[in-house]
């Protein structure tokens, strides 16, 4: 399997970025009661656009709505794109009801990716909350393909309850990989649950990090990411420039034309969704943004 990251081609304003590319669903995986993973392919099987970990597509449910969804698959696989979608409203419900063969439109990939180059030679700490594991999964694929380029890989993953855990089989597989630590926790666990109960931030206290050689990437509810970042900064000594997180806002164009996703001086679709904590830390505490 080819495992090098391929830079998506540069796009120019006025090109066909606003035109959805028709694809069809080739596989549906029901991950949890409200979340599914869709694999999509081109109708004639030609490769789909290359993407970098952390990038997203605008997914069009024909005649319903278009929405931003991160690519959750392996960046080394070129003939399919994978999306993991949690049902929260009309459009995401529509995607969760999709069957093999259904048509979808995709635009992209868009956005600023996770800093994989900067992470080379470092320990990689991935902190995920809920559906936030989906945009982070390509990081794990990339690190496993290039194991010698990275130090320790630590995944801390928290969900609301045990039944909300995504990618269960993969979590078990990842646990067994060399130099890899996987810890999961749930906010509410029944008495039969033998794993951790408590917030994902609690797990941070239990790991040893070398702050000088660690890069952290986190995705989940905004409140969670804020506390993860503070915990890493205040208790583990990580510099705010070594902590990266993804921001979400409503989007229309997905590529910096419409201003819909403005976040202070940034457009999330173009300058993000991945940001350095250092660059957005002051914005995160401004209530009116």
């Amino acid at each position: 399997m080819a495992a090098t990251l391929v830079e998506p081609p540069a796009r120019e304003a006025g090109s066909d970025v606003m035109l959805p590319r028709p694809v069809r669903v080739s596989e549906v995986i029901q991950e949890t009661h409200d979340t599914c993973t869709l694999r999509v392919v081109s109708p004639r099987g030609e490769p789909l656009p290359a993407f970098l970990p952390g990038q997203f597509s605008m997914l069009y449910a024909m005649g319903v709505a278009e929405l931003p969804i991160s690519i959750s698959g392996d960046p080394a696989i070129r003939d399919t794109h994978t999306y993991t979608i949690r049902s929260v409203g009309l459009a995401t419900q529509r995607f969760n009801a999709m069957r093999v063969g259904n048509p979808i439109g995709i635009r992209g990939p868009f956005g600023n990716p996770w800093p994989m180059e900067e992470a080379r030679g470092k320990d990689v700490l991935v902190v995920a909350g809920g559906i936030g594991l989906a945009p982070l999964r390509p990081i794990l694929y990339h690190v496993f393909h290039h194991r010698q380029d990275f130090g320790r890989l630590i995944l801390l993953y928290g969900t609301r309850s045990p039944s909300d855990l995504l990618f269960r089989k993969e979590l078990k597989r990842w646990e067994k990989q060399k130099d890899t630590l996987v810890m999961t926790t749930v906010d509410y666990g029944g008495m039969s649950w033998k794993g951790n109960v408590g917030l994902v931030t609690r797990l941070i206290g239990r790991i040893r990090l070398n702050p000088a050689r660690t890069i952290a990437m986190t995705c989940g509810p905004e409140i969670m990411m804020r506390y993860v970042a503070y915990e890493l900064q205040d208790h583990k000594g990580l510099d705010a420039s070594h902590i990266h997180l993804t921001m979400e806002r409503n989007m229309k164009c997905g590529c910096g034309f419409c201003g819909h996703c403005q976040y202070g001086p940034h457009f999330i679709c173009k300058d993000g969704p991945v940001f350095r904590f250092r660059d957005i830390q002051p914005l995160m505490m401004q209530y009116e943004i």
């Binding site: 906010d187 917030l199 969670m224």
Partner: peptide, 14 residues
């Protein structure tokens, strides 16, 4: 206390 308040608000719920 901070962790408990975050647990109470159920941050994963839309």
């Amino acid at each position: 206390v901070r962790a408990m308040s975050l647990q109470l608000i159920d941050m994963h719920k839309p």
